[in-house]
Design a protein around this nucleic acid. Structure first.
Length: 463
RNA sequence: GUACCGAUGCCUGAGUGGUCUAAAGGGGUGGAUUGCAAAUCCAUUGUUCGUCAGUUCGAAUCUGACUCGGUACUCCA
């Protein structure tokens, strides 16, 4: 019954014990919206969507928050280049992000706070940190003084002495110690800024999450998720801010920290800065979103997942098999119980073991293909429901097999063209004119259309 | 320098002391089915888990060394 989650704080799988079983709180670090997201950015969104679905099945209320960072130096730069406001730029890419994530069948978070809507909360948090002696002003900046937090380094399992200060980036001269990080920084007139007790400026990167969690979810939340690359410094700094701003500095900020592994390309981390990435948008031109989602779930979320064309081809083939088992399934929304649905749940409750959960889906598909009648119908319902636990198999199976890349341009045969040719072929077959019949089938195959004859007629698939 | 992760069969990818003669899918091969196909079903393929030592009655799983690759200490999911 218990749910186990890998907690970066303890570096092991822990039994999930909620703060309040009647209301779970989870927060996922969302995108900085200055361009289209790549498939690596999509991984946490899909993975923690599975977590959200799981928690929602086991607890009466789950509040899932995912922020949108809409002020940041990369945004400022991009907006300036386009000669538009950061609001215009960030809104456009936030919309694009929502569209892309919808294609991946992810559920909408309950809250989606934006940084620029929460500047006041950030200023309050910074003020509290100054009052409690954890932050100081220097040259119009406000900095967090890391040495005042004895627990600093707890999440990333490192101590300041072991880190080589300024190894890769120059240490600013106004810092008291190299590890101190910016809470607030001044803006010149040409940059976005907000009035504050320290002059016109803008927030540092880490403060928004701490402040928004505090404001929207509470002092201590159950689960905080994100990519591994956020462990340090982002999440380490969030903990420092999020605990030190409270009266009881020892109050926990987050009970369970979950981090997903990287998507790699030829073994190397996919990253915008490296340039080795595919945007979700371009991948969606070639494959249905569900294929991307499935591919992201084939590996365990903490393992690296190497991305290639073959990854998608194999994911598509697997989904074809599952949807094949659902063909001619009776429409129904009835909740049913089946041991294999329970098996899926058992795997998901074990730190989101999605690969094992997917293997159960395949077992169900095999059962379906070997059964018929009422038993088959029941098994199909079970597969639909098991798939729903993973956010999969919600499409109509006929639509699935007729999915067409680039449906906007009219290259290739329309559904009507195909049906007409099948009609002609049927007549040829009735006449035992197999030469003509096979000719039509070969023509269609040239166009990527695969035919399947059965006693109930001929159906087709875009391969 | 410090901290950390990975290396599994043709491919993707589970498995962290015995039920592993390694899940599941993809791929290959043979058979059933089909006018022929496709889909489906059945069978089959891979004694093998980076290397070398060790612990153990027993290791893919634990320990040590090594090799290779990657990550963090910059922005990053």
């Amino acid at each position: 019954m218990t749910i186990k989650l890998h907690n970066t704080l303890t570096q092991q799988k822990d039994v999930f014990v909620p703060i309040n079983p009647d209301h779970i709180t989870m927060y996922v670090c969302g995108p900085t919206v200055y361009n289209f997201v790549h498939i690596g950015n999509a991984r946490p969104v899909v993975i923690f969507d599975v977590l959200y679905r799981l928690l929602s099945r086991h607890f009466p209320k789950v509040t899932y928050a995912r922020n949108i960072t809409d002020v940041d130096d990369k945004i400022n730069k991009a907006a300036a280049e386009n000669n538009e406001s950061i609001k215009q730029l960030s809104s456009r890419f936030a919309d694009a992000f929502h569209e892309d994530m919808a294609q991946l069948h992810t559920l909408t978070p309950d809250l989606e706070p934006r940084a620029t809507d929460n500047i006041d909360a950030m200023i309050e948090t910074i003020q509290a940190l100054i009052e409690k002696g954890h932050a100081y002003e220097a040259e119009e900046h406000v900095l967090f003084q890391v040495s005042t937090d004895p627990n600093y380094g707890q999440l990333s399992n490192r101590n300041l002495d072991d880190m080589i200060a300024g190894k890769r980036v120059e240490v600013e001269p106004y810092k008291r110690a190299p590890g101190d990080f910016v809470l607030w920084k001044p803006s010149t007139d040409d940059l976005p800024g907000w009035d504050s007790p320290w002059g016109r400026g803008r927030p540092g990167w880490h403060i928004e999450c701490s402040a928004m969690i505090n404001k929207h979810l509470g002092k201590t939340i159950d689960i905080h998720c994100g990519g591994q690359d956020l462990i340090f410094p982002h999440h380490e700094n969030e903990i420092a801010q999020g605990t030190c701003c409270h009266d009881q500095g020892s109050e926990k900020f987050v009970n369970y920290w979950m981090h997903n592994g990287y998507i790699t390309m030829d073994g190397e981390k996919m990253a915008k800065s490296v340039g080795n990435f595919f945007t979700v948008r371009e991948l969606l031109e070639k494959f249905p979103g569900e294929v991307l989602r499935f591919a992201l779930l084939t590996a365990h979320y903490r393992s690296p997942l190497d991305w290639s064309e073959d990854t998608l081809i194999q994911a598509k083939a697997s989904l074809d098999r599952l949807y094949g088992a659902l063909r001619n399934a009776p429409p129904s929304t009835t909740d049913i119980s089946h041991p294999k649905i329970d098996q899926v749940e058992v795997h998901l409750k074990d730190d989101l073991a999605t690969p094992q959960a997917l293997s159960v889906l395949h077992a169900l598909a095999g059962d379906i293909n070997k059964s018929d009648g009422e038993e088959k119908a029941q098994l199909q319902l079970a597969l639909r429901q098991a798939g729903d636990h993973l956010g999969l198999l919600s499409s109509n199976s006929d639509d699935w097999f007729k999915w067409q890349a680039d449906s906007s341009n009219n290259e290739g045969l329309s559904d009507g063209d195909i049906d007409a040719l099948i009609e002609e072929r049927l007549q040829a077959r009735t006449d035992k004119n197999f030469a003509r019949s096979d000719e039509i089938r070969d023509e269609l195959k040239e166009q990527g259309i695969i035919l399947e004859d059965s006693k109930d007629g001929t159906r087709w698939t875009r391969g």
